[in-house]
């Protein structure tokens, strides 16, 4: 064999067409696309989740990002009901659950995982050190992984790339003595840094009647500062 595998790999890299950032985007459920500037999650992002219904939103996003062959690791996410996550579409045969490691091991555990899986979901019960967080984020950027951070945003020492906040949740379908919980209408707000800095929000059903995340009708509001319209001289 005249050409070694390493040389081949190098050649492949050289002749491969340039990939645009938009082609490497990680998919999100269709109804959530308006929340993100490019319609998806950028590889390497850290995403914060907050509010009543944050766990459901994590499950719905994880399910979409995992796709057909992705893996997810949950590190110290206590009380996260995997049976319910499975109903939102998370394939449980590609889930790894890690007990909360001690503070001194948190950094090495999470950065080992981000090397192997597509998404690491963390829910630190005590503030993460700046060093550990920076190490994890840098590793995620390098490996095109995603870090989902669930729970108290104050435990995270630096700004997340995009923060998702679930609010105004209202369950429907359950009445006094009859019916069952069927769907929940929620508002998801996104605000972040750089390209994601413009706040947007969207209303979705989480879950919808099908059990998955569904659209609740097009309703996108932008919270950008409203432009003051100058009165035209004619009106004045």
């Amino acid at each position: 064999m005249s050409t070694s595998r390493a040389e081949l790999a190098e050649l492949i890299e050289r002749v491969a067409p340039v990939t645009l950032a938009v082609e490497r985007l990680r998919p999100v459920p269709e109804p959530l696309r308006p929340l993100f500037p490019m319609g998806g999650l950028q590889p390497g992002w850290t995403v914060g989740f907050d509010g009543d219904g944050a766990s459901s939103l994590v499950a719905a996003l994880v399910a979409e990002v995992m796709g057909a062959d992705g893996w997810v690791a949950l590190v110290g996410v206590g009380g996260f009901n995997l049976a319910a996550a499975s109903e939102l579409g998370v394939p449980l045969d590609r889930v790894v659950v890690v007990e909360p490691p001690g503070a001194e091991r948190w950094g090495v555990v999470t950065s080992t995982l981000i090397d192997a899986v597509d998404v690491v979901v963390v829910s630190p019960d005590r503030p993460v050190t700046r060093r550990d967080a920076r190490r994890l984020v840098a590793r995620a950027r390098e490996r095109d992984g995603l870090v989902f951070q669930l729970g108290d945003q104050r435990s995270w020492p630096q700004a997340v790339d995009v923060g998702l906040r679930v609010s105004a949740g209202a369950w429907e379908g359950l009445e006094r003595g009859h019916g069952l919980l069927r769907q929940r209408r929620v508002r998801v707000e996104a605000a972040g840094r750089r390209s994601a800095s413009r706040a947007r929000s969207v209303e979705v059903l989480l879950p919808g009647p099908s059990g998955r995340l569904e659209a609740a009708g097009a309703d996108i509001r932008e919270f950008a500062p409203r432009r003051v319209r100058r009165r035209s001289p004619v009106e004045a």
Binding site: D69, G70, W71, L82, L92, R94, V95, V96, V97, V98, E99, P101, R105, V108, V109, T112, L113, D115, A116, V117
Partner: peptide, 24 residues
């Protein structure tokens, strides 16, 4: 992919103990 994850898991088991990493 599974093998790759398996390797990471083996490393964590060395670090945290065999029962610290679980699958559902």
């Amino acid at each position: 992919r599974g093998e790759q994850v398996g390797r990471a898991v083996a490393r964590l088991q060395g670090l945290l103990g065999p029962d610290a990493v679980t699958v559902p």
